[in-house]
Amino acid sequence: MTKISSPFRMKVLRKIGVSLWPWRHMTLKQVEKLDKIVQKQSKQTSLLERKKKRTQFAYQLQAKQIVKALYGNLNTSYFISFYKKSLKMIGKSNINFFSQLERRLDCILYRANFVTSFQEARQVISHQKVCVNTVKINKPGYIVKPGDIISFVSDIKDTQALSITNFLNRPATIKALNDKGSLQSKNNRALSPTKVFYKPVHLEINYHTLTIVYLYTPQQLYYPVQLPLQHIARVFNKG
């Protein structure tokens, strides 16, 4: 099982100031360090608001870092190509952009809590342990269509079921499930509700058989951090 390393988690926390993985175990020293980061960013934000505005480059850099962290650190060029496709679709490009990202096979496994990280999702997919309509798929970026049925191959079902059970029963996971929002600072108001865990309504999940039915492309999504949509458009709308 591939896990996000502690140094990588802390690196993302330093950039964003929000824990995207509150169910991950953190030492007392790391928790104290996160609190200091949030307080420091809050003070810096208030000072910048009083003195001068942040540059557009700073806003766009943070937007890119947030999106990359939310989707397992994919390449920037991939997001740019995806955004170009979203511009050709009917509707708002930002919504289309994120809705299409949610159709990725690795993302669906992650949203269903069948895996604990994007890295783990990509590992089981690349090892041909995941099927779409009984056909083994080895591409994490495979785009799922409405009506597709996602399942694990029979030889890892028991192992994966045990892994899911242990993950959901861990104290850190239970605490995260009970939390209403994220670890954002009080001064950082979100434009939309932030949730750590939620039941994706566009997926029909069966934890007994470990199968997922992709019902439709989602139009409303929840993230544990505020999404600066206007800056995301500027970052990925290239050429």
Rank of each mutant, 00 (worst) to 15 (best):
R104I: 10
S154E: 06
D179G: 03
D148W: 04
I205Q: 00
Y110D: 02
G181S: 12
N138T: 04
N166P: 13
A112V: 07
A172P: 01
I150L: 02
T165R: 09
P146G: 11
K139R: 05
Q220K: 08
A233E: 15
Q219A: 00
L215F: 12
F98K: 03
N113V: 02
Y216L: 04
P200K: 08
I143N: 07
Q123L: 13
I156S: 06
S154N: 02
R122T: 04
V130D: 08
K180A: 06
S163D: 15
Q184G: 15
G147E: 00
I232T: 00
I174S: 06
F97G: 08
I232V: 12
N188E: 01
N133R: 03
H202L: 00
N169K: 15
Y216P: 04
P218E: 13
V196H: 14
R234D: 09
S126D: 14
A190V: 15
I108Y: 10
K157R: 15
T209P: 04
L191Y: 09
K136P: 03
T165S: 11
L168R: 13
D148E: 03
Q123E: 01
S185A: 13
K157P: 13
K145A: 00
T173F: 10
L215H: 11
Y216R: 07
Y223I: 03
Q230S: 14
V235A: 06
I108C: 06
Y142G: 04
V135L: 10
I149W: 07
E102W: 03
V196D: 05
K175H: 14
N138L: 01
N138R: 12
V201L: 13
T165M: 05
L101E: 06
T159Q: 00
L183D: 13
H202K: 02
P218S: 14
P171I: 03
R234L: 09
I174W: 09
T211D: 04
A233L: 08
L203M: 08
K180N: 07
V201F: 01
D106H: 07
I232R: 00
D155V: 09
R103S: 09
K175N: 13
T194C: 01
V124S: 14
L105S: 03
Q119A: 14
I125P: 08
V196W: 12
I149S: 13
Q219V: 10
H231P: 08
V135Y: 00
K186V: 11
L105T: 06
P218D: 06
Y110G: 08
Q220R: 11
L191R: 09
S163L: 10
